[in-house]
């Protein structure tokens, strides 16, 4: 029985670490801030959620119900989208360049219209 749970925990940890490493590679490899936000906002969060689930299962198998870890998972879920939104928005407003492959930019029209109104 414990062998079974150990296997599940190990699989969860390996999946989580895989996603975390991919997000780190993505942050180094991708070309502009906005694409990098994709890597950090999604993969890192999911990876760490997998790891924390593994931790929760590990302690649950010993009969300890550790609610703080579930709370940490909830916080990660809630905060990751807000953090990536704030970073990309401040990047755009500070005029960080988009990648040269970019095809459409609807946001530019909005800010230009705003400038005209002033």
């Amino acid at each position: 029985m414990t062998g079974m749970i150990d296997v599940i925990v190990a699989v969860f940890v390996v999946i989580g670490v895989f996603f975390a490493v991919v997000s780190a590679i993505g942050i180094v490899r991708l070309k502009d801030v906005y694409s990098r936000a994709h890597a950090s906002g999604k993969s890192a969060t999911l990876g760490v959620i997998f790891i924390m689930l593994a931790v929760f299962i590990h302690f649950l198998s010993q009969g300890v119900m550790n609610a703080k870890i579930l709370l940490a998972i909830l916080f990660l879920f809630l905060t990751a989208p807000v953090a990536s939104l704030m970073i990309t928005r401040s990047a755009y407003r500070n005029g960080v360049k988009l990648d040269k492959n970019t095809v459409t930019d609807d946001l530019k029209e909005m800010y230009e219209a705003k400038d005209r109104d002033k």
């Binding site: 997000s23 950090s40 990876g47 870890i69 990751a80 970073i87 500070n94």
Partner: peptide, 26 residues
């Protein structure tokens, strides 16, 4: 290149450290 890149990476470090501590707990 930009400050936002650094913030992004710091944020990701914070998230990954949580996972790091989780594995240490196991």
């Amino acid at each position: 290149p930009s400050t936002q890149d650094r913030i992004l990476a710091l944020d990701a470090i914070g998230v990954l450290l949580v996972g790091f501590i989780g594995i240490l707990m196991i």
